[in-house]
Computed example of a mutant assay.
Amino acid sequence: MPPRLTDSSALKIHRNRASETFLHVEVADEVQERLTEVNRRFTDPVVITPFPQVWGNFGKVIDDEEILNISPASHDLAIHVLALHWANDPVGQMVQCRRALRPDGLFMAFLFGGQTLWELRACLAQAETNVTGGLSPRVLPMGEIRDLGGLLQRAGFSLPVADSFTKTVRYRDAFHLMHDIRAMGEGNALADRLRRPTRRDVFVEAAKLYNDQFADSEGRIPATFEIICLTGWAPDPSQQQPLRPGSAKQRLADVLKSFDPPTDSTK
């Protein structure tokens, strides 16, 4: 059994103390915009989120527990919101969502990607090395879009698509940013994190490095949040299917022979 990445108890404590949901609101708006582009009316949506207050009367809203509170084939739309990056078994979460969808139901997941907080991660690593001579597990490792897109196929979804967008937020200093991260419920909940307080001079050094390397002309620092969207459909015979190997009626070589090779006019 693989080691657990996340301390679920610590994560729950952090989320219970959370007071800032602006990125969740941003994703909720993104969901509404994307759904207007889908030629489908959804009547039984379910939203998996640690912050149900953001979603109002959108549909059924459940927590992102390891065993999701959803029944098989009970929904036509499942949306997993800014929680999958903390899952100890993200593929398992996605498989549960697929099973909860009716055939040709839509799955959407939004999670933080590998470019999220790259500035802070770099400065913290450098500061801890400078001050203590070593590194400790401090920031959640987040996946890259290509790797995360592959999870859709592993979970059994059809027509998988992965894309991303970034949001840059500016703060007065690194302490302001780290306070906001805690307010989002995104503090360090790694299972292998240090169990003793970090020396303050590590954070002071990180704040100095952040300001020196990234501050703008007004003295404010940028923080990047990359949000990856994974989209897939529960399999259904009505969906477009790839051709079976060997089913082509014409050989590629014969097709290519019908085209004259282009001439190169450059010297």
Rank of each mutant, 00 (worst) to 15 (best):
V38D: 07
V131A: 00
R146W: 10
D64R: 02
M1Q: 10
H179L: 12
V204W: 03
G156D: 07
A10W: 08
M178A: 13
K249T: 14
D260A: 12
C97F: 00
G246S: 08
R193I: 04
G185V: 04
A234R: 07
A253R: 11
A100I: 05
P50D: 15
G56K: 11
C229V: 13
S136G: 15
P52V: 03
R170A: 05
H176I: 08
G149P: 08
V95N: 04
Q240Y: 09
S9G: 04
K12R: 14
W118Q: 15
L177N: 06
A122V: 05
E30W: 13
N57F: 12
I62S: 01
P137L: 01
L135M: 04
R40D: 02
E26W: 01
V91A: 11
H176Y: 06
D264Y: 08
K12F: 10
S158K: 15
E186T: 02
I145W: 03
W233V: 03
L194I: 04
E20T: 15
I221W: 01
L151Y: 15
Q239N: 08
G105C: 05
G232K: 03
F175E: 05
R98D: 06
A183V: 07
L84H: 01
L230N: 00
I228A: 01
D29Q: 13
S74R: 08
R99K: 10
L140H: 08
V27S: 04
L140R: 14
F214I: 05
A109S: 06
M178W: 05
G92H: 00
P2C: 07
L117C: 14
A28R: 14
D201L: 04
R41Y: 12
T198Q: 02
N130V: 01
R34I: 08
M142T: 11
F110Y: 10
N69Y: 00
G150E: 10
R251P: 03
G149R: 03
Q93N: 09
H85A: 01
P160I: 03
M178H: 13
K12M: 13
L148F: 12
N130H: 12
F165T: 05
R154T: 14
A155K: 07
T43W: 13
A83W: 07
C229R: 14
S8K: 13
Q239E: 04
D264G: 00
F58K: 10
P160W: 06
T263F: 11
E30F: 09
T21S: 07
